[in-house]
Design a protein around this nucleic acid. Structure first.
Lengths: 326, 326
DNA sequence: CTGTTAGCGCTTTCAA
DNA sequence: TTGAAAGCGCTAACAG
């Protein structure tokens, strides 16, 4: 080590000072510190990692690097990592199980100390399998082993909240723009929609539920399909905010006022949803908190500590796209 | 190496097969491949990195992990990295030069092979300094050395485009919601606004330019300040889309129609801007392309190849928030 | 074509 | 309190 020579000590001594591993006499400490400063030395993390068996890096798997849906969660993770010395490498599974599994293997090869999986598409079994190599915490699943932990938001309840809100405002013809089929969350939101209607003795009209894929364009098209088939309705519940944005635009194009003519509610409460025109009534998922909590949990798993998976519940945020039916 | 024993060969042979470094007899190759498969072996990247002196990792410095402003660029980077074997560590400077410099040092200690700096706050000198350790490409600066490259979007021209568009629609009282003071890009956009007005012989009314900070809330407040001071205007140009969103909401609250009563134009063309109500006229920055191009350039710098820093120009995207003044 | 050897930069016994 | 030596997992030079 360069610094060691410069300070006239052995590499071990430098290491001891860097890590506070053992007592070192003050004169040597000073000399070493001076040398470190002089060369502006920073230990090679790869070498450290190789030796210590930990990389001080965690892996994060998202599905789309450029989606507002993941932004808040990433911020939560970032904050959760603050001051821990950990950094994160972020990879994307692109909503595809195969690719996602590949990414996880890639992270494992990079010797990340743990993995956070956001909206993963791989099976629980796959997660459990990977978790034998490194601890994993994942959103959207119910898991709880010594090395794998899941956090689940209650989609069914959230959807129920949204629809009940509309029902309470007097709406009875409520359209639903769903998420993609074969998506677990989407199924649950549909179930919540159904239950809320059933509880209010409102018949479910299949013609009123139209499929989307969580993107803006699909919300717009879904809305247009509703119009094209001449459906009657006074409110629409979109399975997520993005498709609500699309629906909103379709409404605007038709000259239909929100909320005066039609009420609209979304799901997620993306950062942008307080600044739509008008601000969107939606179901809030605590994404930031999830990121933070997941991170803290992962760090505990990495240390072999016990954890528990509790996150704040979803809640209805009433803004300005819903009103009493007249 | 475990695999080596299992296949009855030396570690070097395994390495050679993994890296294609030399000819290996077919029988041994098969045996090794089988062994690799059996143990599902993946080389330890930290060890590889330590040995080879490259980590196959690049560092990305953004200013805010959860801003739509960086999302598209990150996607461009992600795509640019696709198939290269590189992964990226993303850190945030939080719009703060000190913190940003710290992050860069952290990345350097992690032995990233290169760094992409987005909207950095540190000085060009600092960038140049760091670039002696690892190549750096940065947005928002004009740099061109063997290890540092800058890409600059023409903010002045973009702003000029926006304002000229409004002028051509007959607007003469055009308010400007600026970016934060002491921000280079923001200054340039202000300059473009001024030049466009000056070229059209329109006097610049200082009361019509009000300061924002690029966030939605500031756009809203700026708008309100304009109203509170009873300014007369028929159009407003916001220095970025986010503040345009805020301005839009302020307008909505006052019951002022866009674009019928007031025209609005933004800057950036965030993904969400095609789905605002109505869709926002704005100046498009080619963020995705910048990410992609920056990545390709960085990879070349890492290889010691020569590069050139060319990105597509900004362009006006006319959507539905502007109309001819009546 | 293949094995042996050395070493990347660090930490951690083990002695002294 | 400190240094010498070994080794983390891999690759590259050197023999053979």
């Amino acid at each position: 080590m360069d610094v060691a020579r410069l300070a006239g000590v052995s590499p071990s001594t430098v290491s001891r000072i860097l890590n506070g591993t053992a007592k070192v006499s003050d004169d040597k400490r000073l000399a070493v510190l001076a040398a470190i400063d002089k060369v502006s030395f920073a230990p090679n993390q790869m070498a450290q990692g190789l030796k210590k068996g930990r990389s001080l890096t965690i892996g994060i798997v998202v599905q789309d690097i450029s989606s507002p849906f993941f932004d808040e969660t990433l911020r939560g993770i970032d904050d959760g990592l603050k001051g821990t010395g950990y950094a994160s490498v972020i990879v994307s599974g692109h909503w595809n199980a195969e690719e996602e599994a590949d990414r996880v293997r890639l992270l494992l090869a990079r010797k990340v100390d743990g993995i956070i999986l956001l909206s993963g598409r791989i099976s629980d079994e796959a997660v459990l399998g990977f978790s034998s190599q490194r601890p994993i915490v994942s959103t959207g699943r119910a898991l709880h082993t010594r090395t794998a932990l899941g956090f689940k938001t209650d989609n069914e309840y959230g959807a129920w909240l949204a629809v009940r809100h509309l029902v309470e405002l007097g709406h009875r013809r409520i359209a639903f723009i769903s998420g993609p089929t074969n998506n677990h969350d989407a199924d649950e939101r549909l179930a919540g929609y159904r239950r809320a209607l059933a509880e209010s003795q409102i018949d479910i009209d299949p013609a009123l539920v139209v499929e989307g894929n969580y993107h803006e364009a699909s919300g717009m098209m879904a809305m247009n399909r509703l119009f094209d088939t001449h459906q009657q309705f006074t409110a629409v519940f979109a399975a997520n905010d993005l498709s609500a944005y699309g629906a909103r635009l379709a409404l605007y194009r038709k000259g239909i006022r929100v909320p005066d003519d039609i009420s609209l509610v979304g799901f997620d409460d993306l950062p942008g949803s307080s600044y739509t025109t008008p601000p969107l009534t939606t179901v809030r998922q605590p994404m930031y908190d999830m990121g933070r909590i997941a991170t803290q949990a992962l760090l505990r798993l990495i240390n072999g500590d016990t954890v528990q998976g509790e996150i704040p519940p979803v809640e209805l945020v009433v803004r300005e796209t819903t009103r009493r039916v007249r």
